[in-house]
Design a protein around this nucleic acid. Structure first.
Lengths: 173, 173
DNA sequence: AACACGAACTTCGATATCGAAAGACTATCA
DNA sequence: TGATAGTCTTTCGATATCGAAGTTCGTGTT
C-alpha cells in the first residue's frame, strides 16, 4: 500500500533509472540490441577480412566489389550508378573510386553513344589480370567468411537479413 | 572426345570466363554473396535510420551508442576503451567522439585516481536530459528496425550472426 | 630498486564517405 | 516545337574513421 508514493517527487536518479528501464524494455535488449550489435560487428570484421585478403594486391573491399562486379558482367559494361548500387555507396563515392582505379589502369570509362548522360565502365586487360590474380593466386574465397554455417543456415541468414532490409525500406517510404 | 582440346590455346576471353566461373563457384553465389551483400545493406540502412531518428536531436548513431551505453551503465563510469569496444570503433575515433560530446556538455572525463592511465567517462546532467528526451519525446525504439521478424527469428538471426563473428575471429588468430 | 614490457589514451596525417548542388542530357507533354 | 521535369554524373566542402607514433603510467622480473 503505497498511498503517497505517486505524489512523492522522484529524485533525478530515480527518473534516470526509469528512463533507462523504459529504453531497455522497448529495445528488447535480449534480441534487438544483440542483432544490431552483431550486424555492425560483422561488417567491421568483414572489412578487416577484406583488408587482409587484398593487402598484397593493393585493393580495398570497395575496389574489389567493383572489380568483381565488372568481371561478372563479362563483356557487358556497367554504369557508375549501377556499380554504386551494387556496392552500396553514394554515386559521388563511386566517382572517386572509379577515378582511382582508372588512374591505375584497371578500368576505362567511355561515353554511352545511345544515351549521353551515361558512362560505360569496363575492365582493361590489366583489370582482368588483377581479377584473375586474385581468384587464382590469392585464392580469394569469400565463403571462408561464413564457415561455421551450414548451407541451410546460410540461406536462413540471408532470408532473415533480407526481411530486415525490406522493413527498413518501408520505413523510408 | 576432345583430343586436342587441352592443347589448344585459350583465347583471353575464354580464360576470363573461366576465372569468373571459378570465382562464382567458390563464392557460392547463391548464399555467400547474398549474405555479404545483405549484411552491408543492413548496416547502411541502419545508419540512415539512425540519421533520421536523431536528426532533430542533433545526434549521430555513434554518439547515441555512447549516450545509451553510459545511460545503461548508470552511475558506473566507463573508460574510452570500453566505449570504443561497445561501439566497434578504433580508440582514436572514440577520442574524437568524446571530445565533441564533451564540448557540447553531454559528458565529462575525469582521471581514474586508482589507475592514472585510465580516464573515466560519465554523463552530465545535460547528457542525461538528452538521453531522456530521446527515450520519451523522440520515442527512440530500435526494435522498429526489426519489425517483420518474430521474436524467435530475432534470436535465430542473432545466433547466426554471432557464429559468423566467431568464425571471423578465428581467422584473425 | 631498476629496468623492460605492455596498457590506456591521445595526437597526427591520410583517406573514404556523404549530401548538396551544378552541369549535361533525355523524355514527356502541351 | 518548346518548356519542364527528371536522370546521370561529377565537383565541392565537411566530416568520421583509421593506423601509426608518442606519452604517461602500471606491472612484473631480475
Amino acid at each position: 500500500m503505497r498511498f503517497m508514493a505517486a505524489k512523492r517527487r522522484q529524485t533525478a536518479q530515480q527518473e534516470h533509472a526509469s528512463d533507462v528501464a523504459t529504453y531497455v524494455a522497448a529495445g528488447g535488449e535480449e534480441s534487438v540490441q544483440r542483432v544490431i550489435t552483431a550486424v555492425y560487428a560483422v561488417t567491421k570484421k568483414l572489412d578487416q577480412w577484406y583488408v587482409r585478403q587484398f593487402a598484397d594486391l593493393d585493393l580495398t573491399q570497395g575496389e574489389w566489389a567493383v572489380l568483381a562486379a565488372l568481371a561478372r558482367a563479362g563483356d557487358t559494361c556497367l554504369t557508375p550508378s549501377q556499380l554504386a548500387d551494387l556496392s552500396n555507396v553514394a554515386p559521388s563515392s563511386m566517382t572517386h573510386r572509379l577515378d582511382k582505379m582508372a588512374g591505375r589502369g584497371l578500368l576505362q570509362r567511355r561515353p554511352d553513344t545511345t544515351n549521353r548522360t551515361r558512362t560505360l565502365v569496363s575492365l582493361t586487360t590489366e583489370g582482368w589480370a588483377l581479377f584473375s590474380a586474385a581468384v587464382r593466386e590469392s585464392n580469394v574465397v569469400e565463403s571462408d567468411t561464413l564457415r561455421g554455417l551450414s548451407s541451410s543456415e546460410r540461406h536462413e541468414l540471408a532470408r532473415l537479413l533480407e526481411i530486415v532490409i525490406d522493413g527498413l525500406d518501408d520505413v523510408d517510404a
